[in-house]
């Protein structure tokens, strides 16, 4: 059922040289499946941003490799990486990064403009993206006239305008109050659920991280814990089912030493199937 999207093997990133050398990542191994929502959490300086930049192909690792859809990205040329980012990724930043003097529509259009989509088509798609975030009425407004929450929604529209496989969100609610932040989270998670877009969020907001399927905790350039909530949830559900079945069998009186072992075998098969 699940499909592997990103595979990371032995990732190292070193900044600087000799005395000023700083090892931001010290061997990261990671697999992210299509449609997952992943939170990368850690203190500032832990290497979580570096990891996101590498995953988003904005930077190249010192050592190790990143496979996207089975393709080894370290073998790709800069031009191909640019194209891949443009087509497969969407970005949402804490500081928004919008062209304040330009219209909302033009800000959303930017990735399509870079991709070389025709003027008519890119307008249609940008309007569609704006409709998804509920800002179609603001298309002609200047970006600087919007509130913080609206700006971040425009950025989400910009991130999804090219139908990406992954959205990378760097502290997407960091600059927003809790109400507007909640709304942004809602939009991001509904995109994750309904459009099956993989969500990779870098944050130190534990509450936001809790809402993701999985939390990858980074400390000093290493993954210190990787909790797959969905898996846990699934396992929990399975255990529950098992329990219920056993309970049912127990009620039907089918209760012997062999029966117990049989049940255990069945549940093992079940788990395999789900995985």
């Amino acid at each position: 059922m699940t499909e592997n999207l990103l595979t990371v093997r032995g990732l190292h990133k070193v900044y600087g040289k000799r005395d000023s050398k700083f090892e931001a990542l010290r061997g990261i191994n990671l697999k992210i499946n299509r449609g997952e929502s992943v939170a990368i959490v850690g203190k500032s300086g832990s290497g979580k941003s570096t990891l996101m930049h590498l995953l988003a192909l904005l930077d190249r690792p010192t050592k190790g490799e990143i496979l996207l859809d089975g393709t080894n990205t370290s073998k790709l040329k800069q031009r191909q990486l640019n194209k891949l980012r443009n087509k497969e990724f969407g970005f949402v930043f804490q500081q928004f990064f919008m062209n304040a003097n330009d219209t909302v529509l033009n800000n959303v259009i930017l990735p399509l403009k870079i991709a070389g989509v025709s003027a008519k088509e890119r307008k249609r798609r940008a309007m569609h993206a704006l409709t998804i975030v509920g800002l179609e009425s603001k298309a002609k407004n200047k970006a600087s006239d919007l509130s913080g929450g609206q700006k971040q929604r425009v950025c989400i529209a910009r991130a999804i305008v090219n139908d990406p496989a992954v959205i990378f969100a760097d502290e997407p609610t960091g600059n927003l109050d809790s109400n507007t932040g909640a709304k942004i989270e809602e939009i991001l998670f509904s995109l994750n659920r309904e459009k099956d877009i993989t969500l990779i969020i870098v944050t130190h907001d534990e509450e936001l991280a809790e809402k993701c399927d999985r939390q990858i905790r980074i400390t000093d350039g290493r993954i210190t814990s990787d909790e797959d909530i969905a898996e846990e949830r699934e396992l929990a559900e399975m255990a529950q089912e098992e329990k219920e079945e056993r309970h049912r069998k127990h009620l039907s009186g089918d209760m012997d030493a062999d029966g117990l072992r049989d049940d255990a075998t069945v549940s093992h098969v079940k788990v395999k199937e789900v995985k």
Partner: peptide, 11 residues
């Protein structure tokens, strides 16, 4: 702005 353009895939 240049950073954003490049992140979004501008060569």
């Amino acid at each position: 702005e240049i950073g954003l353009d490049k992140a979004l895939g501008m060569s």
